[in-house]
């Protein structure tokens, strides 16, 4: 290529550049920018989506762990929350709670698992269980049912059986503190009570055993008694 040709090539390039005025229309520019904007928004959305999902998962797992580690605390908090007396609830007497269903009463009398907090609802134990149809069921059946309930709920739930909302709302706030404590002290689970009576009988303290048994039968008229204890019940009271 000669020097002249090279000079001509330069001129061609200069001429071409001078002609180069075409550019995309503003509408075309806007189309491209709209695409860019849309994808920026989508990318920022993609960034938030996994983050929010991860946050939800972490929250759920931590709540689950917390519940597994301290279900009692959570239950107490729930009970505390539910125990707030609702203004619409009528104020029944603090003592016997006949409204409590038999099933619930049976759950309450579960021996050995009787937690202290449960005793606070002791007046319920004095409820005339015989008046309810289910209360006539023997304790063995109640235990069976509790076992079924236990299979559905964590063991910790059973250990601290929740009272019904009505009973909960009626109990603590309305009873005078002193009277409640006296009642709590006086009442014990029927099985334990019967064992104590059995022990008195075994020791030969028959009078004391009879007295206790009379009191027991007054509280739990329908509660089935062993043959030995039935022998202590006076004929007139049978």
């Amino acid at each position: 290529m000669s020097e002249h040709d090279s000079h001509d090539d330069e001129q061609i390039s200069t001429l071409y550049r001078r002609l180069s005025r075409e550019a995309p229309s503003p509408q075309l520019d806007e189309r491209v920018m709209a695409t860019a904007r849309r994808h920026t928004a989508r990318r920022s959305h993609h960034w938030w989506l996994p983050l929010s999902t991860a946050a939800v998962v972490v929250l759920a797992v931590s709540l689950l762990l917390r519940y597994q580690q301290a279900p009692d605390e959570l239950d107490k908090e729930i009970a505390k929350y539910e125990a707030n007396p609702a203004p619409s609830v009528s104020a029944p007497a603090p003592a016997p709670a006949p409204a409590v269903p038999g099933k619930e009463a049976r759950t309450r009398v579960k021996p050995a698992q009787q937690p202290k907090s449960y005793v606070a609802d002791a007046p319920v134990a004095e409820a005339p269980l015989a008046e309810t149809e289910k209360s006539a069921e023997p304790p063995a059946e109640a235990a069976k049912e509790n076992a079924f309930v236990g299979a559905l709920a964590p063991a910790a739930d059973l250990a601290e059986t929740k009272p019904s909302a009505a009973a909960r709302s009626a109990a603590a706030p309305r009873a005078a503190a002193g009277e409640l404590q006296k009642r709590e002290a006086a009442v014990e689970a029927p099985e334990i009570w019967l064992k104590r009576i059995e022990a008195l009988r075994a020791k030969g303290e028959l009078d004391a055993a009879k007295r206790e048994l009379a009191a027991f039968r007054k509280a739990y008229p329908a509660w089935p008694l062993s043959k030995e204890l039935q022998a202590l019940v006076p004929e007139s009271a049978k």
Partner: peptide, 9 residues
């Protein structure tokens, strides 16, 4: 975009 819009077009 402003750098390349016209030459690319």
């Amino acid at each position: 975009y402003s750098r390349y819009r016209a030459p690319l077009y």
